[in-house]
Nucleic acid binder design. Sequence first.
DNA 1: ACCGCAGTTGATACG
DNA 2: TCGTATCAACTGCGG
Length: 543
Amino acid sequence: MAKVIYWFRTDLRLHDSPALAAALDLKPDCLWPIWTWDPHYVYETRVHPNRWQFLLDCQNDLSEGIQKINPKSRLIVMREAPTTLLPKLFKHWKVTHLVFEKDVDAYGRERDEKIIEIAKEQGVEVIVVNGRTLWDSDEVVKANGNKPTMSIKQLEAAAEMLGDPQKPIPAPKKLPNLGTLDVIFEQNKPSKDIFDKNKHNRKSKDQSYNQIAGPENGFEVPTLEELGFDENSATTPIRGGEGKALQQLEKLANDSKFIMTFEKPKTAPTQFDPPATTQLSPHVHFGSIGVRKFYWTARDIEEKGNSSGPPQSLTGQLLFREMYFAAFAKIGAPFLRTEGNPHCRYVPWSLRSPDDENKKANEWLDKWAHGQTGFPWIDAAMRQLRQEGWIHHLARHAVACFLTRGGCFIAWERGLEVFEELLLDHEPACNAGNWQWLSCTAFYAMYYRMYSPVSFPQKWDKNGDYIRKYVPELKNIPGKFIYEPWKAPKDQKPADYPEPIFDFGERRKICMDQMKAAYEAGKYGTDINSYEKGPSRKKQRTR
DNA sequence: ACCGCAGTTGATACG
DNA sequence: TCGTATCAACTGCGG
């Protein structure tokens, strides 16, 4: 008689879930679909209200989806950290099995190892199933000679060895009833001195831990109000939920021309109505779309036509995600920073530490983060990001290059933190990997290829319609000045738009020279304690 | 080993 | 006003 907890994390869906299928294979007597409301996410991760809203959408939709299959079940949200909560549930609810989807995120792995150990002690069987990625990232690493995948070629070669990803499976038709929901134990509240990284976004104190089963005592999904956010704080039109995700995917599947001709570098970052790419990334992050479902939908159509294929095609984009997951899986927590990361080049950026008191650099960072640099293309992208939680991939390239090697020369980790807060699709592996790519510290090396904040966007948007939408101060400026308003004559220059923070041409040269010097020094994140005088990595390397 | 090539660019010169 | 060639000059990869 199996009594099973299915632990939902970043797999907020019923379709294409090999882990949920494994739980149902146990033919459970009862099954608890549980979400643990973890202080690590609530306080220790930067999350904008836009992303909270998306997550709550996903949870509400999932709970409804479960109830549609079995009206006597629903998503059970319990407000406590999993490492203290699950052992109590095991004991008091007489749980026999715990099932969840595999996670290779540095925090996730540590959390899951603890849980697995405790479960073993209590005689609870744990079943972990790969589902978040197309291939188990640990298997990818093994197939890559036990090394992190640092190029798309390496990922493709490893994937070739592992064979095609599994085909997606349909949602279950039946779900078991819930077991007991008696809470005959104390709630462990988050420590009082835990640092709340989201305090600046809250109107009032977070109330989500008041009761373990929520304010209605029904294990319900929390609300933005409970989290202390103003009701108008979620400004994005992009909403979550498996239902929405499947609709979006179906629309995509019916547009085979879009899929067959898709080449990421050719899509326009300035296009906004509708955007030039699928906007499925937040669903991929929260698991409201299954990555296998997405992959096979795209691949079947790519193969029927004359698609360019990976890496530029739609499936290619998912392969980049696999590459970053496998790199993170192997490198672990140091992948999220330069320090201690043997694969990340050391560059003497400004603000290498968040407490660095470089006044000018801090001012530039702040203006960059809030879309006030005086470069309309950069500001438009950063304002769209803050407002909507999503910008096109190439816009991310442009603003990331601008903050790091192509303008401000500020440490990529400072930009990563801003993206962590604002992106709906924030995925630690992809975010860190892309910041390393754009700052030319790993994955990519052509630092002399620099995005111009003036000429790059003009390839797609000569008139600057994108700027006019997101930087309303410039709505009526003539097209020939829209990317360079500082060149406009006084009477045509809007008074409420800032002057540029620097002369881009000058900064371009300074950054390029510094990057050249950093490449010649050849030091990496593991040289960080000795980088002023330590031996050059270039000379040590035997290749 | 060595060589040539290609990779999510920009500025300029040319017909 | 275009499209295209060229240079700048790093790595990983394949022949």
